[in-house]
Structures are given as structure tokens and as C-alpha cells.
């Protein structure tokens, strides 16, 4: 299984903190996002991706604690047992 964690405004939008999906061999985090949206009633990909399918600057995606921008972005591979976190941080102070 892959555990997906939603934080902050995404958690509020989706009304859930976590989602578990069966792992799929060679799946990327971008493909996992598509699968996550299909299993949730509320569309949320538009909050995270622009119209070209590129990641918005407002949301961080971590795979096992590491930002995917240090991996292969949306092409980063996700494996059985991984924890994927979606976090839109507060920027102000």
C-alpha cells in the first residue's frame, strides 16, 4: 500500500487526512495523484497542478520526507510502503 497524507487546506478541501491505495509497480507520483483523485469525490488536482500538468508552487509534495523537487518531480517513483505527503505551507509570518 501507499499512504497519502493531506495537510492544511487540502485536508480541509478533501475532508480527509489520509488515503491508502494499493501500490502499483513503476508508478510515478503524478500517476498516483490521478489515482487518488479518482478515488475521492472532490476534485483537487486543479489545486496542485496548472493546466499543463505542472506542479503549482504553492504545494509541496514529499515522498518519505523528501521533496520531489529533489527527486524526479512528478515522475518520481512511488513504491509499496511509501508515504506521500501533500502540504501547502503558510508563507506569511
Amino acid at each position: 500500500m501507499v499512504q497519502i497524507q493531506f495537510y492544511s487546506l487540502l485536508r480541509l478541501l478533501l475532508k480527509q487526512e489520509k488515503l491508502e491505495l494499493p501500490a502499483v509497480e513503476n508508478e510515478t507520483v503524478g500517476q498516483l495523484l490521478d489515482r487518488a483523485q479518482q478515488s475521492i469525490d472532490t476534485p483537487f488536482l486543479d489545486k496542485m497542478l496548472d493546466c499543463d500538468g505542472q506542479l503549482h508552487a504553492g504545494t509541496i509534495i514529499l515522498i518519505n520526507r523528501y521533496n520531489i523537487r529533489h527527486l524526479d518531480m512528478l515522475d518520481s517513483k512511488v513504491s509499496d510502503g511509501d508515504v506521500v505527503a501533500f502540504f501547502p505551507p503558510g508563507a506569511g509570518g
Binding site: 506542479l55 509541496i60 514529499l62 523528501y66
Partner: peptide, 10 residues
Amino acid sequence: RQFYAGAEQP
């Protein structure tokens, strides 16, 4: 800066 990589100011 690694954790927040890619985060931009609104």
C-alpha cells in the same frame, strides 16, 4: 530550503 523547495511567495 530543501523542505520548501519550489515553494514560492504568493
